[in-house]
Write a protein that binds this DNA or RNA. Structure first.
Length: 570
RNA sequence: GGACACGUGGCCCAGCUGGAUAAGGCGGUGGCCUCCUAAGCCACAGAUCGCGGGUUCGAAUCCUGCCGUGUCCGCCA
């Protein structure tokens, strides 16, 4: 509660000076109270006891009696507890600045190899990244969402080779019928084309596949040297797959502003220029076969210290291109954020250290742990996957059955649109609500849970507020005042934390903080809804309506921020 | 083997720049729809914060050793 903190700190500072406390270390100690009943902010007085050689409880008592303002103060067991006065809180909430952000941010997320459909594991990146994009926008920052397209190298090379050399019959023959395409996704290019990739991977591992390996190697080599004919062939191969993947993301409400191709930095010469620069660094080294590396051990990297950026044949590596890409990205914005799986930690460290060595800034990176299934790791090859397309269908179907049961008054068209919104929102929220570094086991029952800590819980509170607004049928008058029972005070208190939480979520790149805040907001609204009726016996309580409306707006905005579709009725 | 994460009630998870009886949800038990949508609300039960040391007035939080899980340790991407 930064707003409350702002009015407490000045008077607290002078009170502390009066009793002989020096320094401002206490500002850090002034924190959110653990129990709501105790207050909003609390200050432990134990550190002062040491400095002043007095009893902490006594100090707290003395401070409490000398402070006053738009807050209540009480001393308890060596703590000083502050609580905002309800009227001040109401006033404050009605006039909050909701968009203090003013930096330009480039967020690169997803950037998945365009070789097959999304499974829920790969989608964690997209959902976290897009949520960060939305939260930054909600905060007022200028955001560009970018997809880095891996359009060269082995993976695309394999796909391109397969499409050029294998017929549909050959592919079907190579792959077992067991992992045949789900008829539901027949015609969706990512699901169809991945079979060529899988078939190629399968024969590559067979005996006597040396000539295939040579052919693929030639393609890859050409792409890495910027051969435009081969790059065009690659693009033709991956483009339909990427389109299929983007279709899935679009259904999730995820869109990108820009797509940047990896090959760009090879073709335009920035990669070779970069390699020349790296060669002049003092930690530079050359291996026996002419490959170049940086000895990052000299800069404190533990474990494997040689970071290779150039092969013996003079071509670049993925990480090298990534460095060139980062240098270009820094020209586009004030702040850079990357969303990466935890498997990229070392790589990101190497790229970051090299950027530092070059005098460049290091990007913020949000790492996330993998999503696994109860049966273990997700693997397309072993058939142990849940495709995002299937999850969305299941979620929607489940939502539809719930709506049908609860709302017999609705027609199928309306049920369909509600179910789509609920399904997509629930899937996203299920992923954003947990902190990214936590390993995550996907369970159908959790993904399809529409109660408790879920998107529909928040959506439901919002529709209640919408329902009230609809019944009143006009705008609220924010100038009124009235009685403030505890449920309303609590709602006001939670609302006043909106900007703090959003700011924290954005500045620390932690979407789950704001997602969990939305649950708090919805919970507080539900209590308010129960105790503070807006419409009583046909008459409207203007003050209650104003508070309800403010909550409705915050719910609506916050939901968009975490990727929940704000329905007006469900 | 080395590096980096994670380990909190039966299950999931917050808290981790040290502070008061460890916050929610699921599941369990018991209540609440002549009252603005019960996808909701209320109550109860349930926790050696992985284990052992250390620092501190105070440790889930910091340090250290161990155990368990995950990831990485390619002139792959």
């Amino acid at each position: 509660m930064d707003n409350l903190r702002k009015i407490i700190e000045p008077s607290l500072e002078s009170a502390l000076t009066d009793i002989g406390v020096t320094g401002d270390f206490w500002k850090k100690a002034l924190g959110t109270s653990r129990e709501k009943a105790q207050g909003d902010l609390s200050l432990p007085c134990f550190p002062f006891a040491k400095q002043l050689g007095r009893n902490p409880a006594e100090i707290a008592e003395q401070l409490a009696s000398s402070l006053s303002g738009d807050f209540e103060v009480a001393a308890a067991g060596g703590y000083l507890n502050f609580k905002a006065k309800s009227e001040w809180l109401a006033q404050n909430v009605m006039s909050m600045d909701l968009t203090p952000g003013n930096t330009s941010v480039l967020i690169e997320h997803t950037s998945a190899n365009p070789n097959g459909p999304f499974h829920v594991g790969r989608a964690r990146n997209a959902i976290l990244g897009d949520t960060l994009v939305r939260l930054n926008r909600l905060y007022g920052n200028q955001v560009r969402a970018e997809y880095y397209v891996d359009d060269m190298g082995k993976q695309v090379g394999v796909l391109a080779w397969a499409l050029a050399n294998l017929s549909k019959e050959q592919v079907d023959g190579i792959l077992n019928d067991a992992d045949n395409i789900n008829p539901r996704w027949a015609g969706k290019k990512d699901h169809e084309t991945v079979r060529w990739y899988q078939a190629a991977q399968s024969i590559r591992s067979n005996e006597g596949a040396e000539d295939i390996e040579t052919a693929i190697g030639k393609l890859v080599h050409a792409s890495e040297h910027g051969d435009d004919v081969v790059l065009a062939q690659f693009e033709q191969a991956y483009k339909p797959v990427l389109d299929g993947m983007l279709e899935t993301l679009s259904r999730l409400g995820i869109e990108f502003d820009t797509f940047t191709k990896e090959s760009e930095f090879v073709v335009n010469g920035t990669v070779s220029a970069l390699m020349e620069r790296l060669e002049s660094l003092e930690i530079h080294g050359v291996a026996d076969n002419g490959a170049h590396f940086l000895d990052l051990g000299q800069r404190g990297l533990k474990g494997k210290t040689d970071f290779f950026y150039r092969r013996g044949d003079g071509s670049s590596l993925y990480a090298t291109r990534d460095i060139a890409y980062h240098m270009w990205k820094w020209q586009q914005c004030d702040n850079l954020i990357n969303i990466l799986g935890e498997d990229h930690k070392l790589q990101a460290k190497q790229v970051g250290m090299t950027l530092t060595e070059l005098g460049e800034k290091v990007p913020d990176v949000m790492f996330y742990a993998f999503i696994k299934l109860p049966e273990g790791k997700m693997s397309t090859r072993k058939g142990n996957v849940v495709f995002m397309d299937d999850l969305l269908e299941e979620a929607k179907a489940h939502a539809a059955s719930v709506v049908r049961e609860l709302r017999s008054d609705l027609d199928e068209g309306k049920i369909n649109s509600i179910a789509e919104a609920v399904g997509v929102s629930a899937v996203r929220f299920n992923i954003v609500k947990v902190s990214p570094e936590k390993g995550f086991t996907f369970r159908w029952e959790e993904a399809l849970s529409f109660e408790g800590e879920s998107a529909p819980f928040v959506m439901y509170s919002h529709t209640r507020a919408c329902s009230i607004a609809r019944k009143v049928g006009r705008a609220a008058n924010f100038d009124s005042s009235g009685e403030i029972p505890s449920a309303m005070h609590e709602l006001l208190r939670v609302m006043s934390c909106y900007s703090d939480k959003l700011g924290q979520s954005v500045n620390e790149n932690k979407p789950h903080i704001f997602a969990l805040y939305m649950l708090e907001l919805a919970t507080a609204y539900n209590s308010f809804y129960r105790d503070c009726h807006v419409i009583k016996d046909g008459t409207v309580s203007e003050f209650n309506f104003a508070v309800s409306e403010k909550a409705r707006v915050l719910l609506n905005q916050g939901m968009i921020g975490v990727g929940i579709t704000p329905l007006e009725s469900m």
